[in-house]
């Protein structure tokens, strides 16, 4: 099986599902995907799909072309296909919010979205939140400043969701933040700190 190592941001996925591949990360060096098995499903050969579909979209500002199986979720494609493992898989049924990404600027559960449905769209993951020079986004900095996590597994989803929550104008007071962030569960129960972080980041964004 031939490996594909490309520094180009246009990725063509070979039909034989050759891996690993690499994706340029904003603010950091290219990172190589490790050939670890998927989390929930047994390793499967994508070429088993008899219905491959070509897609072209932007992920974190970079144009990407790929060929996917229709059943491949945006979540699995980001993690397994592009190696963007910042987006986490929790419940895989839309209950926990840890897979939250932005599609055309709107927060959505990547586990409830097919990759083929994102053809022609712009997707932003947690890897695309920080500035190009690596400076943390105000929401990321606020989560550090307010100690808004323990284990950290839900944090990427919390951060992406909070960025959208603030942009929507829903980060106005603790009760409103709790309601509009209720799609992101934290089993460490860092909710008081998360609410503080979101409000602090909203204040900074508003003060600029």
């Amino acid at each position: 099986m031939a490996d594909t190592h490309r520094s180009s941001t246009t990725i063509e996925r070979p039909r034989d599902d050759a891996r690993p591949r690499r994706v340029d990360q904003p603010g950091g060096p290219a990172f190589e995907r490790r050939d670890s098995p998927p989390i929930t499903a047994p390793a499967r050969d994508r070429s088993l799909s008899t219905h491959p579909v070509a897609i072209a979209l932007r992920v974190n500002g970079k144009s990407i072309e790929d060929v996917v199986a229709p059943r491949e979720t945006l979540l699995d494609w980001l993690r397994e296909g592009l190696g963007l493992s910042g987006t986490k898989k929790g419940c895989n049924e839309g209950a926990c919010g840890t897979c939250t990404v932005l599609v055309e600027g709107q927060r959505m559960n990547a586990c409830l979205t097919l990759a083929v449905q994102c053809d022609g769209k712009a997707v932003t993951t947690v890897e695309g939140i920080a500035a190009a020079d690596g400076t943390l986004h105000p929401v990321q900095q606020a989560f550090i400043d307010h100690d808004a996590f323990q284990c950290g597994y839900c944090t990427p989803g919390q951060i992406v969701s909070a960025v959208a929550c603030i942009a929507e104008g829903h980060a106005t007071d603790p009760a409103t933040v709790r309601e509009w962030m209720s799609g992101n569960l934290c089993r460490c129960s860092c909710y008081p700190q998360i609410v503080e972080a979101v409000l602090a980041a909203a204040q900074r964004a508003g003060g600029r």
Binding site: G94, T100, Q106, R107, M108, N109, S161, A164, W180, G183
Partner: peptide
Amino acid sequence: AASAQIRNR
């Protein structure tokens, strides 16, 4: 009816 994320889809 659902979370903000689900309501967007």
